[in-house]
């Protein structure tokens, strides 16, 4: 597999190990009911390291999705800047450096699993042979090689979400942005996919920004958990997760895990 990462070049030419730098970021929306504005995010400062698995966790409405969308250039900042490898999010998007996984699978229902995974590569104009090979690799990665011929309506929610992940990885993006990808799934499927995601991450070594409202999930997956609090959306804590890797589901029964979950839970303000 071609996951070998090119050495990144920043504008200064110095590799400081920072993948995404968020400085003094604020995002405001006009309020529907009044003239006032909603502060979705205020004064966010955050550095995300290269290759790091980072989670944004918080109750709904605290601005997790907005932060993710701002990194992906789907939302413009009201104030402050987001820098990705020394470049603007827009430049990175145009170079197709982001792989995005949404909460719903967002599959094209007229395409089979294979053709869904293939779609981004068609846009890039890659030759068919390469596309076919990469599609198989990606489906293999998410354990769906045998289901490539299925249409979305023939697959379970978990399978659909795995196709979505395979599609996000198909363009070999530098950064994987995931917005509550497993929150619509049942507990068993979610746990299985959590483990799968970690093994994919250990192979692919992408930088992952993972949004969730599930504290245990964020602790299990992440190198660091960023705790967001609402009204206005802000960072109230960043918790280092020093559990050893590779991690398996059993780690959740250890006292260290429980302690970390408590630390994250106690970091919320004004909820």
């Amino acid at each position: 597999m071609q996951f070998a990462r090119k050495l990144p070049k920043t504008d200064t030419g110095v590799d400081d190990g920072i993948e995404i730098r968020i400085e003094n970021l604020s995002v405001r929306f006009p309020d529907k009911n009044s003239r006032a504005t909603v502060d979705a995010l205020t004064g966010i400062n955050l550095d995300i390291r290269r290759g790091e698995f980072i989670s944004l966790v918080g109750p709904s409405g605290c601005g997790k999705t907005t932060l993710l969308r701002t990194i992906a250039d789907l939302q413009a900042p009201s104030e402050g800047t987001v820098t990705v490898r020394g470049r603007t999010p827009r430049e990175m998007r145009l170079q197709k450096k982001f792989g995005i996984v949404f909460q719903s699978p967002v599959l094209y229902d007229w395409r089979t699993a294979r053709r869904n995974v293939c779609m981004p590569m068609e846009l890039m104009g890659l030759p068919r042979k390469q596309r076919t090979r990469t599609v198989s690799e990606m489906l293999d990665l998410v354990n769906l090689l045998g289901s490539g011929h299925k249409y979305p309506h023939q697959m379970s929610g978990g399978m659909q979400q795995r196709v979505g992940i395979a599609r996000a990885l198909a363009t070999q993006p530098e950064i994987l942005l995931m917005d509550e990808p497993f929150s619509a799934l049942d507990e068993f499927t979610k746990e299985k996919l959590n483990e799968e995601l970690l093994s994919i991450w250990s192979i692919a070594k992408k930088t992952v920004v993972f949004v969730t409202h599930n504290i245990a999930e964020s602790v299990f997956l992440s190198d660091r958990v960023v705790v967001l609090s609402p009204h206005p959306g802000r960072v109230s804590a960043v918790v280092e997760i020093d559990l050893p890797r590779p991690r398996h589901l059993a780690v959740r029964d250890t006292p260290a895990f429980g302690a970390l979950v408590s630390r994250v839970r106690n970091s919320f303000e004004g909820v």
């Binding site: 789907l74 197709k96 949404f102 719903s104 967002v106 981004p120 068609e122 846009l123």
Partner: peptide, 29 residues
């Protein structure tokens, strides 16, 4: 067409032509 399907195309820097050919026309059939 759902917003997220359009945003997926946007995040892949798809041309307008591709957005119609690969997303809007098939999904409006």
């Amino acid at each position: 067409v759902e917003r997220e399907k359009r945003e997926l195309m946007f995040s892949l820097a798809a041309s307008r032509y591709d957005v119609y050919r690969k997303l809007l026309i098939p999904s409006s059939l």
